[in-house]
Design a binder for these strands. Sequence first.
DNA 1: CCGTCTCCTTTACGCCGTAAGCTTATGGCG
DNA 2: CGCCATAAGCTTACGGCGTAAAGGAGACGG
Lengths: 230, 230
Amino acid sequence: MATKTRRRRPLTTQRVLDRAIALADKDGIEALSMRRLGQALGVEAMSLYKHVANKGELVAAMVDAVVEQFELPDDEPAWDAAIRRCAIRAHDLLIEHPWACGLALVPSDSRSVAGPRVRYMEWLLRRLREAGFSPELAYSAYHTLDSHIFGFTLWQLGHADAIKALEAGDGESVEELAARILEQMRPRYPYLAEHGEQHMAADAPDGKQEFEFGLDLILDGLKRQRRARA
Amino acid sequence: MATKTRRRRPLTTQRVLDRAIALADKDGIEALSMRRLGQALGVEAMSLYKHVANKGELVAAMVDAVVEQFELPDDEPAWDAAIRRCAIRAHDLLIEHPWACGLALVPSDSRSVAGPRVRYMEWLLRRLREAGFSPELAYSAYHTLDSHIFGFTLWQLGHADAIKALEAGDGESVEELAARILEQMRPRYPYLAEHGEQHMAADAPDGKQEFEFGLDLILDGLKRQRRARA
DNA sequence: CCGTCTCCTTTACGCCGTAAGCTTATGGCG
DNA sequence: CGCCATAAGCTTACGGCGTAAAGGAGACGG
């Protein structure tokens, strides 16, 4: 205390986790190294190992911290509205933390039977079964919904990355660059050019709307299936 | 020639590419390093750089080699049947080369306007538009279909990896281990346990069938949308 | 026989995760 | 207060990564 007042409060697992998430949000998961994380916390890399077992565990905890925020609304009686809200909130969170989606998709070290991911799975399956879905239909419905939530979002993030990579290349504005590429490909790939134009349009549906388009397609299909097999 | 007859035929870009794909198929993409690839070809790592610009380009070429094999059937007049075949063939290929899916999803260095990925996109968009989809509906339909093809497959591969990680852990058979975990989680997560049981059943739909379930849900929904907006 | 060109090797740099062992600060206790 | 066990953080080191830079060996046209 006398020496410097530079006594920083000691590290905690939570502080490490929070900083790691902040760093990954800012610079991407590939920029998250133990050395850089230590630096961000004013500490050497090896000090982190007092608080996390290894990088894999840290990353798993980061993903859990995101999935934990998934909304699992049980106040909503309609199964489709409940699942819709859950899916949309999940999508929002995964877009907010773009590194989480790919990592959640590959369960890495499935921490046996616990954690937020499992709670979310149980909730989704329960809502389906309680809504009257047969075990067989709930089985497939779960796969389709879960894969849409994580799969579509990862797909969307991939395309967002591609655009970001483009604008990093030149000083040119994205719009100019995109317009040039569009014209370049129009002769050989007219439909792709049309599609690209739609993306550039001011009123183009964004990722969120497209996520919901697919989600509603799936939910509608599931409703119909449930009726057909009832 | 006199010295040893050990004159191996020189490396080519194609030979490097083929070996890289074989290595990734066998040991996973994370085990593919320039040093290991060189070793597999009987050559030092740096020699590879005479034939590929860098690892990123190599990986991009690997992905292209897979996407190139996508079937884009134009002999099939029905749009839904054509897209169905394309999607299923793509799914097969991506399961066969499990490393490709995640890499294709994140376009990495979009090689401007060429390559098999672009050809596939153009084909899919064309089939939709020629089937009478409006530009707006084709826009969303494309997103949903493409994200299902790559997103669901990646999702499936992630779960397959998780299972593989499990069986690597113990000498125990997967069935025994799974049964034990199932019983462990049944009290707190009964629906998840039920779902797990379904996965263990001998006649459980496999990944391929589940992919088609979601695909048909989407295709049916798109048909209905097209009619509704016609 | 001599360039020169092509293919491949060597060496080295700066990253990475982390094992092992060390130093230093902290807090409880006499 | 002094003392010391313990916890927190630091240093060093290892093997692996992608790849820049420069070197060498064999083939080949002159």
